[in-house]
Structures are given as C-alpha cells and as structure tokens.
Nucleic acid binder design. Structure first.
Length: 645
DNA sequence: ATAGGGTTAG
C-alpha cells in the first residue's frame, strides 16, 4: 500500500538511517515522489544525497540524475554520491564530468570516488595523474583511503613499481593499504614472493588480509600453501572459503572441493557457482547438475553465473534435455537473457545439434558482441552448414563487430566443410593481414582440414611441415580425417602415430533422461551392458539383412578380419546408439557425443540404423555434427528463425 | 550521512 502515512514513515526513517531502509525499487520511487511533493528535493542535500546513493545500488540511475538536476545548490555530499553512482554503473566518463563541473570544494570522498573511476578505463590515465597532483596540492593525498586508491590506480595503469612508490611514501598505513599493496603484487605482477613479503611485514592482519594471501597462492596454483594459510588464519569467513573453493575448482581437486563445500555452514550463490563450475571443469557433469538441483531443494537462488556454468556443462556433453530445462527455468523466473547468458544458450543448443533453437535465441538477443556472433558462426560450422556460417560472418562485419581469433577458427572450418578452398585461403591471409590476428594451432588445423578434405594431401602435409608451432592433436586429426576420405594409408599411419604419441583415446557418451552415460571401445562396465550387447547383435542382424557389409579397410590395419568386425561393432558411438535404442522412447532423437571423429563405417552403420529402426540420430564428434534421418544425413529446418529469413 | 583491500561466468 502506498499510503501517505507509509511514505512519510519511510522518508523519516531514510533521513535517520538511510542504508538500512529502502530495499526495493518501489520504495525508492514512492520516496522520490514524496521528496518532490514536500520540496525537500530542492533544499535537503542530505535527503537527495541518500536517495542518489540508494537509487544507484537499486539500479535506478535515472532517478538519481533527475533528482540531482532539480537541485539548485547541491553540496559536496550530493556530488560524491552522484560520482559514485556513475562509477557503480560503469560510466566513468560521466563520473569524471560531474567532478570537473562541480562548483563546491571537493573532499577526501570526492578524491576516492574519482580516482576509482579513473581505474576503470585506461583512457583516464592522464586524468588520474592530474587528480593525484590536485590531491597533493590540497593535501588530500595524506588521507589513507585516497592514497590507497592511488596505489590501485598506479598499479593498474603504470605497473606495480609505481604503486609501490606511492605506498612507500604514504605517511601512515593501515591494514587496508597493506592488503591493497599485497593484492597488487598478486593481480598485476603475479609476484607471489613480494606478496608474501608484504603479508609477513604487515603489523596487523584482518580476515580480508588472510583471504588476500590465500587468493595469492590460489592464483599461483599452489594449493598446498593456500591451504596452509587458510588453516593458519585465526578466523575464516564465507568469502575466504569461496576463494579456497575456487582454487580447488581451478586445480581440478574435486574431492577437496566437495569436502570443503559440504562442511560449510552457510553458502552464498558464489559458493554454489564455484562448485558447479568446478564439477563442470572436472567433467563431472551429472554431479554438477545434481548440485544445481540441490540448490532448488535448499532454496538457494541461482543467478546468471549459475546458468552459464550449467549450460557450458550441457554444451560439453551434449545434454540437450537439461539445457532446455535451464532455458525454461530462466524464462519462467524472469531472468534477463543478456549477452553472456544468451551466448551460453546459443552455444549449448548448437553443440547439442539443435540449431533451430540456437538461432531463435540469437535472434532475440538485444546486444550481440563478438562472442555471441562467434557462437553462431561456430554452431553453423560444426553442424555442417558452412555457407550459412559464412553468412553470419559477413553479417557480423556489416554490423561493425570486430572478429577475433575464435571467429576465424569458425570461419576457416566453415570453409573446410563447405569445400571452399580459395575462400578459406583468402580468410587465412586476411586474418594475418587486415585483422592482425596471429594464427594458433587451431587455425593451422583448420587449414589442414581445408586442404585435406579437398584432396590436396601433399599440400596439407607441406603446410604442416611449414608450421612455426608444434602441430597438436587437431592438426593430425584433420590430416587423418582427410586420409580416410581419400584412402591414403601411408599418410594416415603417420597421423595415427602422432596422435598416439599425443595420448588421444576414444570414447562417446549419450544422455538419457538428464543423465550422461559414457562408453569406451568394447566397454563392458555399463550396468545395462548385457542389454546393450544384445541390442548390438540385433542391430548387426537387422543390418545384415538390409545388406550392410563393414568397410573394414580403414580402421586397424594390423588386426585379423573377424576381430576387425568385432572391434568395429563395439565402437563407442555404436554402443551409445544401441543404448539410445533401448533407453529412449520411440520418436525421441538419439543424440551422441564423441571425442574423436566418427569413422566411415560407423557413419554408414548409423545411417542405416536411422533407416531400419526409424530413428533420428545426431552424432557429434570433435569437429562437427552428423544428422541422420530416414537413412540419409538430415538437416533440420534452419531457415525459419534465421536472422536472414 | 557518503570511502579504499581478498570470490564465480559465454
């Protein structure tokens, strides 16, 4: 109820203890109206300053600036809050403009806020230096928070030595300035030894100082030392535990991660997100989804980071059901699909082979940055739609979005899939020239793929030899793929030799009812193993009747004939497809994710399975998708939601 | 009445 009594009460409370009231935007809007009605907005710097401060933290910047504009004589308190408001909303230029135009004497709070704004953008280096000079002239540089702000400013803009100079010249230091100096060594110069030296020299340490030191070791990847400091600290707060969780997540120490997490009395959304992210990184996808479900049970509210983490897990294992569920959760709960969440959705859909949904999400995104375009370009490329992918590339350039190295991987692989050799070569040239992007092993792999697929095997081989960097698995994998297509056994053996040396193994997985099942070659460990092999025998029998003969020429050159047939029929992707035939209801699309390329025989067999068993099958391998429907490689209806339609 | 330091993401 917006009764006048209620509003008056709110206003009076605000004037006494402003930070504890006004929790919602509507509270603030009512108060705004009240201040105007009572003309307090013209005279009370106290009321207006506080309103600006609360408006900024509630995301209502327009209320803040309206109130400011209406005030004839704002005092320094009002100015400070407006500068802080702009800074909070990432408008450092506006913050500094307010500072330059203010016609009252700045105080130490003003200097802190403006220096902070200068840290945000490298363009404000000279501005920051001149504010520093002004603080020296007016004596505000002796204020500890001002000097601390300057340490951060110089560390970010001129390096840690310049920051250290300010630190050394400070008249007095407190625990915050010491911790700031420590953090500069950690974040700016990766100098853990100097950070430790500062830590050992500090006259007093609070929980944040201990936390900063833990974070330093975490960033250096030294979890042993991080744990030592963590255990040694006189007290541990939530943030410090989260830092530790992040370290275990980054190091892939999932056991320690879960042990610490489960032992925590209270957790915030960062704790949950860190654990989910760590499980996804550690390829423990089912556990990651389980933790997400645990969040619901424990009434913990997820945020956009949670969604992005879970979605990236879905993308990696091709878990379309879970991904769709997350998408509907986002919509149901009114979360905004911003550039990052949108890209995560697009990426998930396209890596699950659901291009139609990916295109739909992309089309509805308000802001599309490089990463968003990349996910579309990559998505179409991986799904074998090279021309469409290049259309997106050109649209992106028309929109004035600068391509990066990820874009070019997508573009080059599109050219490879579409057989556009000359276009691909042109793009490779353009990338190094016009765009000034240095090629990575990914790009070289794409070029090998481009040449190899087109049958230019000798050129591909020569290209590999001319590479200035060591060829990775992707490069040899591309060459092997080309050898399979063009039946070049000698070159294939060379590629396989390198792949084995680089430690590549074989595996595939499939998602049933939100759970991921993994299969290796000749896998026998799965709980429904007997059923799966029975199904494989049925598959073999039905395919034989349909006239299939295995093309054993290309796999295992040194294996006896029968063993060859056996090994081929237990290739991981076939085990997974067989499991899909058992575990999924008729009419559901069977989606399989594989970490190597699908061999020619499996490709042929799965094509036949899709026909004989009347199932739609999508197999994703390390470079692209294979859609099968009614015995043919199938394409979904992609044009409907396309931005070009 | 307003300030400065350690945590998660496409």
């Amino acid at each position: 109820m917006g009764s006048l009594h209620h509003i008056k009460h709110l206003a009076l409370t605000l004037l006494k203890t402003p930070t504890t009231t006004l929790r919602t935007p509507s509270d603030l809007k009512r108060l705004h109206v009240y201040l105007i009605k009572t003309h307090l907005h013209l005279t009370s710097s106290f009321a207006v300053g506080n309103l600006i401060s609360r408006a900024a933290s509630l995301g209502l910047l327009s209320h803040a600036s309206t109130m400011f504009d209406q005030m004839p004589h704002p005092n320094v308190f009002v100015y400070n809050n407006l500068i802080r408001a702009f800074h909070l909303h990432h408008h450092p230029q506006n913050a500094l403009l307010v500072f330059l135009r203010m016609n009252v004497v700045p105080d130490s709070f003003t200097f802190v806020a403006t220096i902070k704004a200068c840290v945000e953008d490298p363009a404000f280096f000279r501005m920051g230096a001149s504010i520093h000079a002004r603080s020296v002239r007016t004596g505000f540089d002796r204020d500890v928070p001002v000097a601390t702000g300057l340490i951060e400013f110089y560390a970010a803009r001129a390096g840690v030595d310049a920051a250290r100079k300010v630190f050394d010249e400070m008249g007095s230091r407190d625990v915050v300035s010491w911790t700031t100096m420590l953090a500069c060594y950690v974040n700016v110069s990766d100098d853990i030894a100097s950070a430790r030296e500062v830590f050992d020299t500090m006259p007093e340490k609070d929980v944040k100082a201990w936390g900063a030191m833990v974070g330093g070791y975490v960033k250096a990847g030294d979890m042993g030392r991080a744990r030592e400091v963590f255990d040694e600290a006189p007290s541990r707060d939530l943030l410090m535990r989260n830092v530790m969780l992040g370290g275990y997540a980054k190091a892939g120490e999932v056991g320690e991660l879960m042990r610490l997490f489960d032992g925590m009395r209270d957790r915030d959304v960062v704790s949950w997100n860190t654990v989910i992210g760590g499980l996804v990184q550690g390829e423990r996808f089912n556990d990651a989804v389980a933790v997400f479900h645990r969040m619901q049970v424990e009434n913990a509210r997820p945020n956009r980071v949670t969604f992005v983490n879970v979605l990236s897990g879905c993308a990696r294992v091709g878990a379309l059901d879970v991904g769709r569920w997350i998408h509907s959760y986002i919509d149901r709960n009114g979360f905004v699909v911003d550039a990052v969440v949108g890209t995560a959705l697009v990426d998930m859909y396209s890596k699950c082979g659901a291009l139609e949904s990916a295109t739909h999400v992309f089309g509805r995104m308000a802001r599309k940055d490089v990463a968003a375009w990349n996910s579309m370009i990559m998505g179409y490329s991986m799904n074998g739609r090279g021309e469409k992918s290049l259309e997106f590339f050109h649209a992106m350039r028309r929109e004035g979005v600068e391509p990066n190295e990820v874009t070019m991987v997508g573009v080059l692989s599109s050219c490879a899939h579409a057989g556009m050799v000359e276009e691909g070569k042109r793009c490779f040239e353009m990338m190094q020239g016009e765009l000034g992007i240095a090629p990575t092993t990914e790009h070289y792999g794409c070029v090998v793929d481009l040449l190899g697929r087109a049958g230019l095997l000798r050129e591909a081989r020569e290209f590999i030899q001319s590479m200035p960097v060591e060829p990775g698995t992707n490069v040899w994998g591309a060459l092997l793929g080309a050898c399979k297509i063009h039946k070049n056994v000698a070159l294939a053996e060379l590629a396989v030799e390198h792949l084995i040396k680089l430690g590549v193994d074989d595996g595939g997985s499939i998602e049933i009812d939100g759970a991921v099942h993994e299969f290796g070659v000749g896998e026998k460990a799965h709980e429904r193993c007997r059923e799966i092999y029975a199904m494989l025998r049925e598959v073999a029998e039905r395919l034989r009747r349909a006239g299939h003969v295995a093309e054993t020429g290309e796999a295992f050159f040194d294996v006896e004939e029968e063993e060859k047939e056996m090994a081929l029929s237990t290739h991981s992707e076939r085990l997974a497809v067989a499991f899909g035939l058992i575990g999924l209801r008729k009419g559901e699309v069977i989606r399989v994710v594989k970490n190597l390329r699908v061999c020619v025989d499996c490709h042929a067999v799965i094509k036949l399975i899709s026909k004989v068993f009347e199932r739609e099958i999508v197999v994703r391998d390390r470079s692209r998708f294979h859609h099968f429907k009614e015995g043919r490689p199938a394409m979904q209806n992609l044009v409907k939601h396309s931005v070009f339609a």
